[in-house]
Design a protein around this nucleic acid. Structure first.
Length: 587
RNA sequence: GCCCCCGUAGCUCAAUGGACAGAGCGCCUGACUUCGAAUCAGUAGGUUGUGGGUUCGACCCCCGCCGGGGGCGCCA
């Protein structure tokens, strides 16, 4: 947020160093720890180490401190800083707080909902996420891709990209055929009740059970698969109708979760184009056709002339000529770039177990000469497991259904609202319960390294205390509450003419960090950074809240604090929005 | 056999190669006539799995080892 100031100081320091015959590396700015004050910091260890490497007999620590002291002396009296010090090799510049504090608050209030975001870059990216299987249950294990992918979309959008949100439902495959078999035979004519997804999932589980108990029924399923391959019109019609039921069920859940998509790619769409690409690969000599004794494979290590196994072998078509996931993924990438030739990146938010698969698919496309192959990127994340490291699997019955979790979270949040704020009107209570319940589900999935396993248990998932979304939302509500009592109108910006408290400085410091965190998080594809700053902002505001009276304060303190509260409310709201969490007005 | 990820307080997790490794939960004690107690204050808790290396400086980078998880020719 202070790039211009930083640059100015950098030039000044470099000019001083040049005059002294000192060689300095690029100056890197950090924040000052422990001080309770607010400013910029850099160190001279690298400069000192460079001298040492050139053969000078010096103690790096001492020399760094010498340089810091000399630079501090040169910078003495610099405009905009109330104090400059050299400590243990570090140069600390403390902002002239009144001046910068006003600037920060003004900037936030001016930028509003866009505060923290960067200008449009004119570059388009696609994020594919949430690939649910139709004709199956949607459980908590499927939630992470949806929540993570959605947060990444929001983050990338804020970082200036045009984002295409793509879903890729698994709408065909053996699981679908099994479902259709069971439906035709035992449930013909039935229609789903209000809990569509649960009903679809139950029928799938039933199909699996029946097939386990009657192995001879497998022949019927195989026959049905053959009819599908022939595109039997009656079967296709049934497939289309039942698939829509699943999609309707998913749409309800996405709506509840406030997750949307611009584009749906279906597994089934990629089946035929995938087979065409395989033909092309065979023609180009990239794929080896081992049929009928084996499948069609791409021997990546061999093609690349590698001695050690790295990419291994990718199977791109079954020996019976039917498509695999890899077949479809080859085609899907091509379709994406036909639809959006200008994509600078196509992200795949898919769990980490498929890392090798994507490495292979992307490498194969590269070998096939597709120029956009290097723009494909897998964004891996770890699974959501149950306690005891139990994987959620529909077949094992070890699942927590998403709709159960959503219902329970909202109903618990609702109970707390009833208790804490009974006078709210009905519609508002429900809105608050949804914001809090959904936030409580999303936050723990985002406030964690993508590469770390999330263990789901009901107690933690529904715990509204501590470092959790409701705490952050509550800070927003209290800020809002002060502003409501003050009348709600935007006060004029005035010079800050009083000594700011440590709590005010800390809060302002955190607000200024948000734009940086957005940039880092977007670059590294880690919403975790936003989850952290959102919590830090809430915590810091709470400290401020208890230490600094606002409404009862005398002018001019009252004016600035009201504007600071307004800026904080905005910063918290924006950081939650990046996570896909709503900041309620009351709760 | 080859490859990837994880290991930090009792538990769940943070921490741009930088100054003193921080939160939450749980335990105990205290605070509502207060801008809202979904809150706050206080106490306790660490050889960052382990052995080396690189660096002025390592939880972070490199190598080995231990422990846990995952992936590796016709599942998705």
């Amino acid at each position: 947020m202070f790039e211009a100031e930083q640059k100015q100081i950098e030039e000044r320091i470099q000019a001083y160093a040049a005059a002294q015959g000192l060689e300095l590396p690029v100056i890197q700015w950090k924040w000052i720890p422990f001080s309770g004050d607010w400013g910029l910091s850099t160190s001279f260890f690298q400069a000192a180490a460079m001298e040492a490497r050139q053969g000078k007999k010096i103690n790096v620590q001492q020399r760094a401190q010498e340089i810091a002291e000399a630079v501090a002396a040169d910078l003495e009296g610099m405009q905009g800083f109330e104090r400059i010090e050299a400590v243990r090799g570090y140069l600390n510049l403390y902002f002239s707080a009144p001046e910068y504090a006003r600037k920060v608050v003004d900037t936030v209030l001016e930028e509003g909902d866009r505060f923290g975001c960067l200008p449009r870059r004119g570059e388009r990216v696609m994020v594919e996420f949430s690939q649910p299987n139709t004709h199956k249950a949607f459980h908590v294990g499927h939630l992470r891709s949806a929540i993570l992918g959605d947060a990444l979309c929001r983050l990338l959008e804020c970082a200036g990209y045009d984002v295409v949100r793509a879903n890729y439902p698994g709408d065909i495959g053996l699981h679908v055929i099994k479902w259709l078999w069971n439906y035709q035979k035992y449930h013909a004519g039935e229609r789903p009740s209000e809990n569509i997804t649960r009903w679809m999932g139950d029928l799938y589980a039933e199909a699996s059970r029946r097939l386990e108990n009657n192995p001879e029924a497998e022949a019927e399923v195989r026959a049905l698969y053959a009819r599908w391959d022939q595109r039997d019109p009656e079967l296709v019609a049934l497939w289309e109708e039942t698939r829509q039921w699943s999609l309707d069920g998913f749409a309800e859940m996405y709506k509840r979760l406030d997750i949307c998509f611009d584009r749906y790619y279906f597994n089934s769409m990629a089946e035929q184009p995938g087979k065409a690409i395989v033909q092309e690969l065979i023609a180009k000599g990239i794929a080896s056709d081992e049929r009928p004794d084996g499948p069609v494979v791409v021997k990546l290590d061999e093609l690349l002339g590698l001695d050690e196994e790295k990419y291994r072998v990718l199977v791109v078509l079954r020996s019976d000529g039917t498509a695999l996931y890899a077949t479809e993924d080859l085609a899907l990438a091509k379709i994406k770039f036909e639809d959006y030739p200008d994509l600078v990146k196509a992200y795949y938010v898919v769990d980490v177990r498929q890392s090798l698969h994507f490495t292979q698919v992307f490498k194969t496309l590269e070998l096939a000469g597709y120029p956009w192959a290097d723009r494909l990127q897998h964004v891996p994340y770890e699974l959501v497991n149950l306690p005891g490291n139990v994987v959620m699997a529909s077949r094992e019955g070890t699942v927590v259904l998403l709709e159960d979790l959503i219902r329970e979270a909202i109903s618990r949040a609702r109970a707390v609202v009833e208790e804490k704020n009974p006078e709210l009107d009905e519609a508002l209570k429900q809105a608050v319960a949804e914001a809090v319940g959904i936030g409580a589900i999303k936050y723990p999935m985002l406030a964690r390294e993508n590469a770390k396993i999330v263990t789901f248990d009901w107690e933690t998932a529904l715990d509204f205390n501590g470092q959790a979304s409701p705490y952050i939302q509550y800070a927003h509500v209290r800020a809002n509450s002060i502003l409501r009592k003050a009348g709600g109108e935007l006060l004029d910006s005035q010079p800050v003419t009083y000594e700011l408290t440590p709590e005010e400085k800390e809060l302002i410091d955190l607000i200024t960090r948000l734009p940086n965190e957005v940039q880092r998080a977007a670059k590294e594809l880690k919403p975790l950074y936003i989850a952290n700053i959102a919590y830090d902002l809430a915590k810091s505001f709470t400290d401020f809240y208890y230490a600094c009276p606002v409404l009862q304060a005398e002018e001019p303190v009252r004016n600035f604090r009201l504007r600071l509260v307004m800026a904080t409310r905005q910063a918290i709201k924006n950081s939650l929005a990046l996570l896909g969490i709503t900041a309620p007005e009351a709760m």
